[in-house]
Amino acid sequence: MELSGKKIAILATNGFEQSELEVPRDALKAAGATVEIISLQPGEIKGWDKKDWGRPVKVDKTLDQATAADYDALVLPGGQINPDLLRVEPKALQFIRSVFDAKKVVAAVCHAPWLLVETGIAKGRRMTSYKSIKTDVANAGAKWEDSEVVVDQGVITSRNPGDLKAFSAKIIEEVKEGRHMQRSSAA
């Protein structure tokens, strides 16, 4: 299997967009990766499915139990609620930044690029996002593109749920490539 022996973290909390967690999770597992859901608290987190609360997802580890060294990549699902709650949590921001600083793949979809803005990762990068946060991303110093998926030295961004298959395929491709040792850090 393509990602056999690889371990991927998905960082989320209540209000994640259901499909933006489940589609990449399932694609990564199908490719042979071990996938763990990381959150602020143990137990379950509840998704948002289009216009109402969705299904719960079991949390595998809390942020206190997870370290960047444990993972080959990090996936950040969007939705409006999830990244907005996470971007005010210092432990979440430190975890994201630690994965990035270790030159590992960081993937954010829809509104999750807010987390890349908050951590300083967006500065100087080519990125995309959900259209309503285009200005936030650009104001953070990123070069925003209206593209399905944008990859900049192992930082993957995708604009919305319609692009989840392409987003998931790009995560698999980048994880197979390994660490991005040439990655520059503008922040």
Rank of each mutant, 00 (worst) to 15 (best):
I10W: 01
W48D: 09
R25H: 04
N14P: 07
T13P: 04
D64F: 06
A31D: 04
G32I: 10
W48K: 03
P42K: 08
E36F: 15
Q18T: 14
A33R: 04
I37V: 15
P24L: 10
G43I: 14
E22A: 15
F16A: 01
K58D: 08
L21Y: 01
V35W: 00
D64M: 08
G54T: 12
I38Q: 00
W48P: 00
T34A: 09
L40Q: 15
V57D: 00
E44H: 05
K58I: 13
I38S: 01
E36K: 05
L63E: 02
A30T: 10
T34E: 11
A12P: 02
K46V: 13
V59M: 11
K51A: 09
D26F: 11
K61M: 13
K7M: 01
L40K: 14
A9M: 10
G43C: 08
Q18V: 10
I8A: 03
A31P: 03
L21R: 05
V23S: 08
I38K: 00
E17N: 06
R55W: 11
T34S: 11
V23A: 11
D26I: 03
I45R: 00
E17F: 10
L11Q: 04
V23P: 08
R55N: 15
A33G: 06
W53D: 15
K29C: 08
T34W: 02
W48N: 01
E20Y: 00
I38G: 00
E36R: 01
I8G: 00
V23E: 13
L11V: 06
D64Y: 09
E22V: 15
F16K: 08
S19C: 14
E44W: 03
L28Q: 05
K61D: 14
K51R: 13
K61C: 12
E20I: 01
D49C: 14
K61Y: 14
D26T: 14
K46E: 08
I10K: 00
G47Q: 03
D26C: 03
K58Q: 12
L11R: 01
E36N: 08
P56D: 07
V35K: 01
A12W: 00
V59I: 13
G43A: 10
